[in-house]
Nucleic acid binder design. Structure first.
Length: 537
RNA sequence: GCACCGUUCGUCUAGCCAGGUCAGGACGCCAGGUUUUCAUCCUGGUAACACGGGUUCAAAUCCCGUACGGUGUACCA
């Protein structure tokens, strides 16, 4: 990636440079393998969906594989149904995995809890090679030290200096360590971060990043409960699963030096890394969170989610009426652009157009208005037939019997006016039901002194029309208007008021054709009775 | 605190790597047009290079600094 900004840090005189690993060149695209690795601790956030989407696009663009790996190494944070939710969410989005917990694959298992045994082996390898060590400090002990140092306005880090003062296999005699282990004393395994090195990393989006290992600490790789931490598990699995590119959220950038160090310690080739910018709150500061959705009234999750413990319900894009293609299109453009002025992309077109170096560096805010605009676009593009089948559900909910009415035609007349299928009803209810009331604003504006007599006249005249097609009624009514030298607007607006109940809706003659002659005359009658003759004043 | 990342219209962004454009597009908003209403649609408008230095004939673009923001700093991922 050419936009890498060279960063000329102050020279570290006594520091040796860790050379960059040899560049991995992929001779064939089939060696491109990427993964999305969520933790099943709840519903998948849309930021996660976007990360997965970019991974997917990247893989498919190059004919590579896209893998779903469940990172469930924290047993305390297990949430029932979260994994199923993740699978269902991508299903809805139309994003398919080549290897996953449900689909399997030759690099399984794809759930880290099921790979438990192998991690300790790799942790042991690091201990053998001197890159890791046992630590017996209890969380309480460490917390106390932390508090103590905080009181002195210092920060505690388990680093090259502190580890010499703590209870671990570097400070204890070998026999003591042996004893502790045999006595089943709880322990963790920590990475022995080398001192005085500059870790040089190449990020596909941000370019070169350098970090001095002296500011890094000895992260826990293996927990006392027998499970690895994310750091160990993701490096081991990415290596074992032959992951070629790690594309993940920017929140992982600070731990990249650790991961790179782990690859170095294992002596493994590194994948390439790309850290995606975050999704931000639409207002204020910070990254988008669940609360923002509740507060601002838009979904933060692809699908609705009911918390299994509290029963709390979080809305989803699907349930809010977004089409998956609109959702995907919108998400894709939040942080990436095609380099030209196209805005509408199907998934397949995204695959074609996607490129990692067109991904931006800065976080983006979600814009609900634009999201609606995308949905409107896809709704209008849909065939009337497809919309009718969706609209039928709405009618059922409203307990409306469409009878013999041509729903296909009706939907076609009003679809331009809505963003969501659910809005179709309020734009078409008058096709099915006579107005139950007349909008006061419209009455005030459109129901003139002469309206009563004119509409009465109109009723009589329409009653004589045999051919009640839109075309014919329009011809007849317009001729009548001209003949009597009435105002076109005056008549039509009053007429619309009686038929629709307010100032909205498509071409009036199209409406009366659908509701038919009888209903039309009834509605005029009813309106005349309710509205009466407005007195001149 | 420390480390790292970032900063172009209200929002998403192009342009930056290979300095020279009236800084382009889209959403929104505003105005006008079309129209029997509303919406759509069409036309036009509004509005941005965080700040300060430096390099250069010329800086949104390259360099340095500042400010602001974000992320990380857990036996979470």
């Amino acid at each position: 990636m050419g936009s890498a900004k060279e960063k000329t840090n102050a020279p570290y005189s006594s520091v040796k440079l860790v050379p960059l690993p040899p560049k991995i060149h992929f001779m064939e695209n089939s060696s491109i393998r990427v993964r999305f690795a969520p933790s099943p601790t709840g519903p998948l956030h849309i930021g996660g969906v976007r990360t997965a989407l970019y991974n997917y696009l990247f893989a498919k663009k190059s004919g590579g594989s896209f893998i779903l790996r469940i990172e469930d190494t924290d047993q305390n944070r297990f949430v029932a149904g979260a994994e199923e939710y993740i699978v269902e969410a991508f299903n809805w989005c139309g994003i398919e995995f080549d290897e996953s917990v449900t689909k399997g694959g030759e690099f399984g298992p794809y759930r880290q809890s099921e790979r438990k045994e192998m991690y300790s082996e790799y942790a042991d390898m690091l201990i053998q090679s001197g890159n890791a060590y046992y630590a017996f400090d209890t969380p309480e002990e460490l917390n106390n030290i932390r508090k103590q140092l905080e009181a002195e306005k210092k920060t505690f880090t388990y680093d090259a200096v502190q580890r010499t003062l703590l209870k671990n296999s570097l400070t204890l005699a070998a026999s003591e360590v042996e004893e502790l282990l045999e006595a089943d004393t709880p322990f963790v395994i920590r990475f022995k971060m080398p001192a005085d090195q500059i870790i040089v990393m190449e990020d596909e989006i941000r370019g070169r990043v350098e970090v001095n290992t002296n500011v890094l600490d000895d992260k826990i790789l293996f927990k006392s409960d027998g499970m690895p931490t994310y750091h160990l598990a993701n490096v081991v699995d990415d290596h074992l699963m032959k992951i070629s590119h790690v594309i993940r959220g920017e929140e992982w950038l600070p731990s990249l030096p650790l991961h790179v160090s782990l690859y170095n310690a294992f002596g493994w080739d590194k994948p390439k890394f790309a850290h995606l910018p975050l999704l931000l709150k639409p207002d204020g500061k910070g990254k988008l969170s669940k609360r923002d959705g509740d507060r601002l009234g838009f979904p933060v999750f692809p699908l609705q989610w009911t918390d299994p413990v509290t029963g709390e319900v979080s809305r989803g894009y699907r349930e809010d009426g977004y089409f998956p293609e609109a959702f995907i299109n919108m998400m894709a453009l939040l942080g990436w652009n095609p380099g030209d002025e196209r805005e509408f992309f199907s998934l397949a077109e995204l695959v074609e157009a996607f490129s990692i170096d067109k991904v931006g560096k800065s976080g983006s805010r979600f814009d609900q208005e634009k999201a609606k605009w995308f949905n409107h676009h896809y709704l209008v593009e849909k065939s009337n037939d497809e919309l009718v089948s969706l609209f039928l559900d709405v009618l059922k909910e409203k307990n409306v019997d469409p009878g013999q009415k041509d729903l296909n035609y009706i939907v076609g007349l009003v679809k331009e006016r809505v963003n969501f299928v659910s809005e179709l009803w309020e734009q078409s209810s008058f096709f099915f039901e006579a107005p139950s009331e007349y909008d006061p604003q419209t009455v005030k504006k459109r129901w003139k002194t002469d309206s009563f007599d004119q509409m009465k006249e109109l009723k009589i005249m329409l009653g004589e029309v045999q051919d009640f097609t839109s075309e014919n009624t329009e011809k007849v009514v317009k001729a009548w208007i001209e003949e009597n030298e009435y105002g076109m607007g005056t008549i039509m607006n009053a007429f619309r008021l009686l038929i629709v109940g307010e100032a909205k809706g498509p071409h009036l003659f199209d409406i009366i054709e659908v509701i038919g002659k009888e209903d039309t005359l009834d509605r005029i009658n009813c309106g005349l009775q309710v509205l009466g003759k407005k007195e001149a004043n």
